[in-house]
Design a binder for these strands. Structure first.
Lengths: 225, 225
DNA sequence: ATATGAAATATTGTAGACAATTTCCTGATG
DNA sequence: CATCAGGAAATTGTCTACAATATTTCATAT
């Protein structure tokens, strides 16, 4: 069969993504094909495809004849990602406002509810998945495959950035701000929804420590001083 | 060796991209692996990687167990692409203004000069490559790998959209407007450069025929009426 | 003792073969 | 005559083996 007892490529990608988001896989670490093939008990061919997918999501860098490494996003790149997210998600909200159904609102409210329970239970893994999933759900509802794909990319990169530059112990992207956005959309107040989204993203960005160099050598010198 | 007499994946991707941009490959056409492997005289494994790359650039859709097909972007998706391009390229110009060198300006002017000669000679292939290349060069100069990758994606999609919805015989993205943008950047006038870029993109979009359905069945009925 | 270089090891890149699925064609039946 | 079932051909998905490249290790010479 197509998936003979082995896990699918998508599942491998998600497992690696989660490991990175949970900081179990540090930036710069090499993801060796043979090693991963042994861990997931599949052939290297499938691992290669999973790594290629992770590369297009901006989570790993593949250097020819060298291998795949977990990305180390720079501060500037982090700021770029948030800048573009503000544009793209603004477009998403604008598109949703035009044609939102009752079923869409139900899905959104249900998602926010899931986020609340995950937060209450301190279920870290669920919190990470769901907080990104909310934004992805909005993109899906917008009905544009292009915007959905773009958001998928941006969410992945944001996860990595968050894993690297987060300084607070608690996870951001809290459900309350999500709930407010849903309410604004439900009320048909596009301008408000757009403003709330922008504010939300600025809030998330502000919780990161984006003050210049986190260079290895710099840290070493600081440690030895 | 790694490339034993065979062409690289990147070269395959570029050839396919060019075929699509030149309308030799129509939307909806299936790109069969065996067929392509025979054409380029490489193994299917390399073709598969090329197709995966084309998928992430938004040029083909891969349906599991079915194959790869040239995408058929909708009118809405086309508008989304241009909307996002305006945001991303605005960010690119902003980043460039901060730290543009004399060498950068030389490269830009050289590129525009190449565009002019290609236009003068009616070298269609070169015109297509160079007109997208200008925007890509700007992204490269901005120094952000993230923005560069995003622009690469957007340019590919724009090429497909142009191939599908262009109604004028002549290619858009003329070198004159590019030259103006370079001049504004050289003068350090960020606001003007940003405005020119926005105007340029609106101009390109306006030259497309984005008036609703280009459905096959619709065309058939119209033809039989 | 350190630096250089060459062999050994490990890892990635590619190709070809096999398995599974889908599609298309043929033929039987209501 | 249309429709649906069955089988053959074609196409995609996956695995294993081999070739090329990079890294490490160890010996040797300065």
């Amino acid at each position: 069969m197509t998936e003979q007892a082995g896990i699918s490529i998508q599942q491998i990608v998600e497992k690696v993504w989660l490991s990175i988001a949970e900081r179990r896989l540090r930036p710069g670490v090499q993801l060796k094909e043979g090693q991963m093939a042994a861990i997931f008990d599949v052939s290297r061919a499938r691992i290669r495809q999973a790594l290629a997918a992770l590369e297009r999501e901006g989570l790993v860098t593949i250097i020819p004849n060298r291998g795949a490494f977990v990305c180390q996003p720079t501060v500037d790149e982090a700021r770029d990602v948030f800048t573009i997210r503000r544009s793209v998600e603004g477009r998403v909200v604008a598109r949703i406002g035009a044609s939102v159904t009752k079923a869409d609102l139900t899905r959104l409210r249900s998602h926010v509810a899931q986020e609340r329970t995950a937060n209450a239970n301190d279920a870290t893994t669920d919190i990470i998945k769901l907080s990104g999933g909310f934004h992805l759900l909005l993109a899906e509802i917008s009905g544009s495959d292009f915007l959905f794909g773009m958001m998928r990319d941006l969410i992945s990169r944001t996860s990595l950035i968050t894993a690297v530059y987060r300084n607070t112990a608690r996870f951001n992207c809290g459900p309350d701000e999500h709930a407010e956005i849903v309410d604004a959309i439900a009320a048909g107040d596009l301008k408000k929804a757009s403003g709330l989204m922008e504010h939300h993203l600025e809030h998330v960005e502000s919780e990161l420590d984006l003050r210049e160099v986190r260079d290895m050598s710099h840290d070493l010198r600081a440690a030895l001083a």
